[in-house]
Design a protein around this nucleic acid. Sequence first.
RNA 1: CCAGCCGAUUGGACAACCGCUGCUUUGCAAAAAGGGGAGGAAAGUCCGGGCUCCAUAGGGCAAGACGCUAGGUAACGCCUAGGCGGCGUAAGUCGACGGAAAGUGCCACAGAAAAUAUACCGCCUAUCCGAUUUCGCGCAAGCGAUCCGUUAGGUAAGGGUGAAAUGGUGCGGUAAGAGCGCACCGCGCUUUUGGCAACAAAAGUGGCAGGGUAAACCCCGUCUGGAGCAAGACCAAAUAGGAAUGCAUUGGUGUGGCCCGCACUGCAUUCGGGUAGGUUGCUGGAGGCAGUUAGUGAUAACUGUCCUAGAUGAAUGGUUGUCCUCGACAGAACCCGGCUUAUAGAUCGGCUAUCUUU
Length: 133
Amino acid sequence: MRAVAFSYPRSYRITRASEFQRVFERGLHRRISVIGLLVRVRESTSGRARLGFALSKRSLKRAVDRNRVKRLTRESFRLHYSQLPAVDFVILSQAEVAGLDNTAILLQLDLLWQQAIRLYPKLSPAAVPSQAD
RNA sequence: CCAGCCGAUUGGACAACCGCUGCUUUGCAAAAAGGGGAGGAAAGUCCGGGCUCCAUAGGGCAAGACGCUAGGUAACGCCUAGGCGGCGUAAGUCGACGGAAAGUGCCACAGAAAAUAUACCGCCUAUCCGAUUUCGCGCAAGCGAUCCGUUAGGUAAGGGUGAAAUGGUGCGGUAAGAGCGCACCGCGCUUUUGGCAACAAAAGUGGCAGGGUAAACCCCGUCUGGAGCAAGACCAAAUAGGAAUGCAUUGGUGUGGCCCGCACUGCAUUCGGGUAGGUUGCUGGAGGCAGUUAGUGAUAACUGUCCUAGAUGAAUGGUUGUCCUCGACAGAACCCGGCUUAUAGAUCGGCUAUCUUU
């Protein structure tokens, strides 16, 4: 049961060019920003939260840094998935991320998910925040 | 022992939990289990190939790359061996290392002169006699030499300039000088010997060509058709732009920088089409490892053995704990061979020089 709760299958990702375009459509998305990352968000058509990346070579020059951001974001997304609203997230990078270490990036991601939950309270699955651990 | 040179390997380890991914097995399916999952540079995209399509890649011009010799290779701008030159005591290492007696261009400043050479100072000879500094002879006039100067000529030994000035040193020679003559060194040419060759050595011969720059144009030799896996092939919603046959041969397009050549396009008739998306190309290969043989070596041949990433918004990870020397540069995207650049440390092998000891 836990294995199901924390998995990250293909259906949790944005895979089609048209779906990326939908999120980027002018005036229809919302923006969330934390240190080093910009996120564009729009209500998902699939009824669940999905994640996509648009990391530019200009902001993150080295492939190693791009991979690191993707892996950490995916990991954090996976662990917070049960609390997230049914929206599409597209992650854009800024050059400062390369200077942050893993724990700092994970901290920023925590802030990101909290903002998303506040923005879309109706779409979030847990109306009652689960404080029990 | 210390100081170096060359080559090679490695690039935190272990455990737990939570994930991702392709393969195999089980299963109707959902899923489960098993074992696999970044690099020496995966990088820069600088060369060379394979593969694919364009015509089967053909002719000419243009353009570009390369440039000591021989070999290796699928090929190369790579590698190996050798030659020559520079650096180093040495092991070694570095070199766009063909041609400047085919032509053109450029060479600041300085200097007389920078290339058909040339005479500024100096040196020497002759001349004019002007002057009379000094000396000799003479009673003197004067004569001879000398010095300062005029004119004509000889001279590249010396000075000065420069990155570079018609080869260097010595002896002879000369009015002074000069390859003017000779010896040795350097250079050119010829022959012989060694070497496949680059080249080296020896002998003879010529008094001796003539600055630098070819990463300036250029000349000589060798090589190169273009585009790239978003190549290309297949299945196929939506929408008509397609195919075959006949006719037409001017223009347009494919074609690469251009020309030739080649293909397509136009009209009629009959059939049918290929954008989103998906599948494939996609990893078994000029493959790795071990051995034997040939070769100085790069490498090749043979035998045995192994299968060792294949993603597609794009996996190969995250957290925690323990240990240590506290972890560098950095992430596959069709695949190989190189080159270049980045890289904390650790390990191994071979070699050189100095000192000490034997």
